[in-house]
Computed example of a mutant assay.
Amino acid sequence: MNESPELDHDELILRIGRDLADSYDEELEMEFEDHHPLPDAQGPIHGEAEKEYRRQYFRQLLRLQAELVKLQDWVVATGQKIVILFEGRDAAGKGGAIKRITQRLNPRVCRVVALPAPNERERTQWYFQRYVTHLPGAGEIVLFDRSWYNRAGVEKVMGFCTPEEYEEFFRSVPEFERMLVRSGIHLLKYWFSITDEEQHLRFLGRIHDPLKQWKLSPMDLESRRRWEDYTKAKEVMLERSHIPEARWWVVQAVDKKRARLNCMDHLLKQFPYEEVQKSSVTLPQRERHEDYSRQAVPQDMVVPEVY
């Protein structure tokens, strides 16, 4: 016989509250990654103004994430197809923004695409071919952490494409994106903009943080040296691929928190979404059988409880 798992009302509420708090702790764990002070930190740079700034940030973040859940439900209910491109210099904060956008969403609806460098076969394909396979079907949102604009940026600056391939890209990309839009895809393109000084500081932070050193590749270090070349490439890219059907939006990203909130707010305002009415959910009673007895797990299979 099994003991009944039923809890009294107060204990049930307590446990539900703990579970909710644990889900919100995910955001605090991300804050550790960003090396921001905790709410109860003390010191000249962690005073009341800083704590109030953080309180406002979390309040707005959770509000916007709740709206993103509504957007997600609307996308599924109406069969929308959404593609969002995130571009910007190394350490511009694209990944942090993507994490906050997707944090509360269903990964079966909203997925992130971050492609590695093309392999030998992909280099012989039509340039856009490997991106096409990741485009959404009805009821899906796809976020590209870097995109086909690699050709206009890193490939141009590092010499990974020929001048002819570079020019062909700019002849093709407006038509490619118009085709996507005509097919029913909503296409948004964000450029995360940071200053020379801010990138320098973020790179130093990565160099001296063993938890972040993996983010620095030889390519990242070379991009730092070629700041001006990347600036010129970015300016050409924005000028030659900013079209009415798929325009660029520049996110001021020196302040990471403001950048995330502004990007999320802007993204939401691009869609006429409405809250989808759902039927109420009733948790069914679990069936219980007199002849069922839960088997004990052998101790050599149990993970040691070190914590």
Rank of each mutant, 00 (worst) to 15 (best):
G43F: 07
P44E: 12
I45C: 09
I45K: 14
I45Y: 14
G47Q: 09
G47W: 07
G47H: 06
G47F: 05
E48Y: 04
E50S: 03
Y53F: 15
R54A: 02
Q56M: 12
Y57P: 02
Y57H: 11
F58M: 14
F58E: 03
F58I: 06
R59F: 03
R59A: 09
Q60K: 14
L61E: 05
L61W: 06
L62N: 11
R63V: 11
L64R: 05
L64F: 09
E67A: 04
K70P: 09
Q72M: 12
W74M: 09
V75A: 11
V76G: 01
A77F: 00
G79I: 09
G79N: 09
Q80L: 05
Q80S: 12
Q80Y: 03
I82W: 04
I82G: 02
I84K: 04
I84Y: 01
L85W: 03
E87I: 06
G88I: 01
R89Q: 03
D90R: 05
G93Y: 06
G93C: 08
K94N: 03
G95H: 01
G96C: 10
G96A: 11
A97W: 01
A97C: 15
I101G: 11
R104Y: 11
L105S: 08
L105T: 08
N106D: 14
P107K: 08
P107W: 08
V109H: 04
V109A: 06
V109T: 12
C110V: 15
R111N: 00
R111F: 03
V113D: 09
A114H: 13
P116D: 06
P116C: 03
A117G: 13
A117Y: 06
P118M: 09
N119K: 08
E120T: 15
E122P: 08
E122H: 03
E122V: 05
R123P: 07
R123Q: 15
R123A: 14
T124S: 10
Q125I: 04
Q125S: 11
W126R: 12
W126G: 14
W126S: 10
Y127G: 06
Q129D: 03
R130A: 10
R130M: 10
Y131E: 07
V132Y: 12
T133F: 02
T133R: 13
L135M: 15
L135A: 12
L135Q: 09
A138C: 13
G139E: 04
G139Y: 04
G139T: 07
I141C: 12
